[in-house]
Computed example of a mutant assay.
Amino acid sequence: MTGNIGIGFEVRGAAGIITLDRPKALNAITHHMVLAMRAQLDAWIADHAVQHVVLRSAHERAFCVGGDVRHMAELGSTGRKEQARAFWRDEYALNHLISRYPKPYVSLVDGLCFGGGFGVSGHGSYRVAGDKLGFAMPEVAIGLFPDVGGTYVLPRLPGWAGTFLAMTGARIGMPDAVALGLYTHHIPTERWPDLLEALAAGDEMDALLDRFAVVPPPPALASLYPMIDRVFAGGTVPAVVAALEHAEKGEGVEAEFARLQLSTIRRASPTSVFIAFEQMRRGLSHDLAGCLKLEFRVVTRLLDGHDFFEGVRAVLIHKDQAPKWQPSRLEDIDPAAIAALFDTPLPDELVLPE
């Protein structure tokens, strides 16, 4: 296997294999990894020996817990904002390339898959979920938002599940992730070596995945999806909060679920919660490239703000879990200011190929 720190590349028969391998950081994606992956994917397009691409993790615990936001916060807070923006510009371009990749592209995802981990896997033609998958877009907890194309993917999930995932950052397991369509197949992790061998032998990917796939267990949230649809269909953030407050006054599983979502939303950055809701409102009107362009506008402006740096400090650096958000309450957010984050063009917009 050839590669650089954190990522490796190998051609095994007909398969081009990308392996995420940064175990101490749970495969958090660095700018270096983004650029290396982009260069290799570009090279494999012209390599006739490579019939399909496989993305995997070298470790069981995590597929990838997202982009290296800790480093991005360090850059942004020490006068190197343009370096941080360059990471997101290149990451989003990689996400877009994966969505249009001319060869079959499959991600084998087990363990934790958050944020940027979904960015490099979720836009591919095939997405295989392992037994212990834990999926989340938890960015609102650190003053960020569900980017890497979350604006495109999440509103297209069944019902209002995407809005629920975006506003709360909730983690779901493999059965729910497959049921919602975030993954195309469930293949037990113990079968992956056989799957890789068949891909290397040149077996056609679509038929092969269907042959290996099994039916997942029932989704854990199955009984709650009707309630999620009622609550998160609210036309504004205050309407969603009010619906949760009403639901928590009841009894049983639904009341307990509503209580948990309310406490989660109230701990998150109020600005981020409003951004996430706005993403869900706008996403259906744009293709993936348009959504990534909007996300680049928003992330650029968050680098001029407070909450992203404070969220990284509280959750990832000092780990006191006590961020001081500005503004500190959902009630203090101006929806017009949130809309401006999306609507105001940048002097150097993200440009992606048609």
Rank of each mutant, 00 (worst) to 15 (best):
H186D: 00
H185P: 02
G159Y: 06
G149E: 02
A170Y: 09
W160R: 14
H186Y: 15
P158G: 05
D176Y: 12
G181D: 14
V153N: 00
T151R: 07
A179W: 07
A166H: 08
D147H: 14
T184F: 04
T168Y: 06
H185S: 04
W160Q: 15
F145P: 04
G150R: 11
P155G: 13
L180P: 02
P146E: 07
R156I: 08
P175Y: 04
L165E: 09
H186M: 11
L182S: 13
A179P: 11
D147L: 15
F164K: 00
T168E: 08
M167N: 04
F145G: 09
T163E: 10
Y152F: 15
Y183H: 15
G150S: 08
H185V: 07
A170T: 15
H186A: 06
D147Y: 11
R156C: 10
T168I: 12
G159E: 03
T151M: 15
F164L: 14
G169F: 01
P146K: 06
G159L: 04
L165A: 05
L180V: 09
T151F: 02
T163W: 00
P175G: 09
T184S: 15
T168A: 09
G149P: 04
G159Q: 03
M167H: 02
P158A: 12
V148A: 11
Y152D: 14
F145S: 06
G162S: 07
T151G: 10
P158W: 03
H186T: 01
Y183R: 02
G173L: 13
L154I: 12
H185A: 05
P146A: 15
V148K: 02
G150P: 03
G150W: 04
Y183I: 05
T151A: 13
L182C: 03
T168W: 01
R171C: 13
A166S: 15
T163C: 15
G169V: 08
G150E: 06
L154M: 14
Y152V: 00
V178E: 02
A166R: 10
A161N: 07
A179I: 10
G150A: 11
L154N: 06
A179D: 14
R156G: 04
L180F: 10
F164I: 05
P158F: 11
A179K: 09
L154R: 02
L154E: 05
H185L: 01
G149R: 03
L180C: 06
M167C: 14
D147K: 00
T151V: 06
I172L: 09
G162V: 12
V178H: 01
G149F: 05
T184G: 08
L180K: 04
A170P: 00
P158I: 12
T163F: 00
T184V: 07
A179S: 15
G162N: 10
G162E: 13
D176H: 10
F164Q: 03
T184N: 02
V178F: 03
H185T: 04
A177Q: 04
F145N: 06
A170C: 04
A179L: 05
P175W: 13
M167Y: 02
G173A: 14
A170I: 01
F145M: 13
T163S: 14
H186K: 12
L157Q: 10
A161D: 01
L165H: 01
P175A: 13
G173I: 08
P155L: 12
M174Y: 00
A170M: 11
G169I: 05
I172N: 02
V148L: 03
L157P: 01
L154A: 10
